[in-house]
């Protein structure tokens, strides 16, 4: 709220605050959220949905889901840590 005194407008205040919150902090929040997502997706009960004797493109559903999610997860990590809005530390 300190920025308020300088900039006046509410919009500018929020703008200034999100910049002041540092991109590192934002990245940290995104990464934690990603871990939570992974923890949920790779455990009961979501995992049990895929425990079926069926195939996706010739691959058992469970195997396919696990490895596909793995790849997606890697891509998400890469996107977050390499995000171009992030200033180099």
């Amino acid at each position: 709220m300190r920025a308020c005194g300088h900039n006046g407008g509410l919009l500018e205040t929020f703008g200034a605050r999100s910049i002041a919150m540092s991109p590192l902090k934002r990245r940290q929040e995104r990464l934690v959220a990603l871990v939570v997502l992974g923890g949920l997706a790779l455990n009961f009960p979501l995992l049990s949905l895929f425990s079926r004797e069926a195939f996706v493109w010739g691959v058992p559903v469970l195997f396919f889901y696990l490895f596909a999610f793995w790849l997606l997860f890697v891509v998400l990590i890469a996107l977050i840590v390499k995000g171009k809005s992030m200033a180099k530390e």
């Binding site: 455990n43 009961f44 004797e53 010739g58 058992p60 469970l62 195997f63």
Partner: peptide, 28 residues
Amino acid sequence: GFGDLFGRAMADPALRRLMTFDAVPGGY
């Protein structure tokens, strides 16, 4: 390839269990 391998495994009653979570000892 994968399709052939998994298909033949699925056909084997002893291996069918391995395709699902039931085979994991201790469960979730």
